[in-house]
Design a protein around this nucleic acid. Structure first.
Lengths: 235, 235
DNA sequence: ATATATAATATGGTCAGACCAATTTTGTTA
DNA sequence: TAACAAAATTGGTCTGACCATATTATATAT
């Protein structure tokens, strides 16, 4: 006779989430065992297990076979899983992702300057020098380029912003891009990094914005070329 | 003897995701029943159910009791669930969210102007007029203010950008903000909306950026005041 | 006494079968 | 043909069993 709008499993999920809150459990803290939860929540093991599984799949829990159930870390891995599937099924316009990345990078510069942040230039210059060395030696440059931009965003002193940017970055990494850059292009990129830093040192938002925009141009050109090819059916 | 790194449930999840891809299933398409999946995948119903449950919890599937299993919509509701819990457990600095929103709003203006988008000014002006009426009548203004900004971002012609912005907006809505605006403040806000539109019409990025920045100032002032109070232990 | 190897226990993983609840389909009747 | 009722389908929950891995306790050797 009891009409229950939401399933027992969902209710149990909520109760477990509430348990975490009430007991102020944090990363890697241990939860009661399945058995204990069955007794405590007065539901079948089936329900407890499905609830635990679901909570694990959204990253709230971490289940160690034979070990126990623990509070998961908050690295948003599950969000990336979701976006991965969304990408697989819906695809994504590369242009859209690049536009977003540009906005975020410009935003980071703005935050740094407007909040008058004491940037760790030494470290950023070191990263860029490693980028330079990689270019000279013809080794993997992408890695150092990424590190530079990643750290720039870290400097914006906004953890949430950084997290979201990382998610976008991972999403972007799903896309295969064959943007070939010869050494000359790479050296230009390296120089732009330096100029962005120079702009930040002078706290000149307009200038650093301008350079960052230029920095993105080759990518947009590549994308427009790709989209043009697509329309021509050249695949 | 068979060593399996990942659990059967995880494998089954992957197989079901693959099934969706292979059969090009889209929103609301029906999947095989639990029974059929048990036969097809040669695993127990327990495993199938836990896999389905997990996929449902991340929004990939939608389970209708008595009806069947269907492909979920891609509204990222599950991501919002994840962020909700993250907010409950970790909290978030309001300042960070406002900073992000500002960056995104400025970014939208940039996209609109740089891509020379043919903005639907008529609609935006209508929304803003409704905002004005709400202010005059002392009714719920927040709604119309939100709609204006929401639509502005829609105009940027970047679905992915819009989706992410919506996620941030929902995240933001979790935070209780008691920013009181008297009629004068609201009229100023209304005027700024108009000026932003004027800037867009003239395709003047710098100007619209400037107004948008001003538009955010009251919120930042409020936040800084709150943070100040916090430090003083005034709660 | 300590360290190591071994056995026992605890914990999550998987399977099977049963029954319940809601939905969908089918069949009957007005 | 439409409305209602019965049957079948489908997911929801429960129980109990056994397996695999991880943890803990115990025995053993040094």
């Amino acid at each position: 006779m009891t009409i229950q709008k939401t399933s027992l499993v969902e209710i149990t999920m909520d109760r477990i989430k509430a348990y975490i809150l009430e007991n102020k459990l944090t990363e890697n803290d241990k939860l009661p065992t399945e058995k204990e939860l069955v007794e405590k929540l007065q539901v079948s093991r089936t329900v407890v297990r499905e609830a635990l599984r679901s909570l694990e799949s959204i990253g709230i829990l971490k289940i160690k076979p034979g070990g126990g159930v623990f509070v998961g870390d908050s690295n948003f891995r599950s969000i990336k899983t979701i976006l991965k599937h969304h990408y697989d099924t819906h695809g994504v316009k590369i242009r859209e992702l690049v536009e977003i990345r540009k906005i975020l990078e410009l935003g980071a510069l703005r935050l740094i300057i407007e909040k008058n942040i004491d940037v760790d230039f030494k470290y950023l210059e070191k990263l860029n020098q490693e980028y330079y060395q990689a270019i000279k030696h013809g080794s993997d440059t992408k890695k150092y380029d990424q590190l530079f931009h990643q750290h720039l965003i870290k400097e914006a002193d906004n953890k949430t912003f950084y997290n979201f940017t990382e998610i976008i970055r991972e999403y972007f990494s799903l896309v295969k891009i064959d943007l070939v850059q010869n050494q000359e292009d790479l050296l230009t990129s390296f120089q732009e990094h330096n100029e962005i830093l120079a702009g930040l040192k002078k706290k000149n938002l307009e200038y650093s914005h301008k350079i960052m925009s230029v920095h993105f141009e080759p990518i947009f050109e590549y994308i427009y070329e790709m989209e043009g090819l697509k329309e021509n059916g050249t695949n």
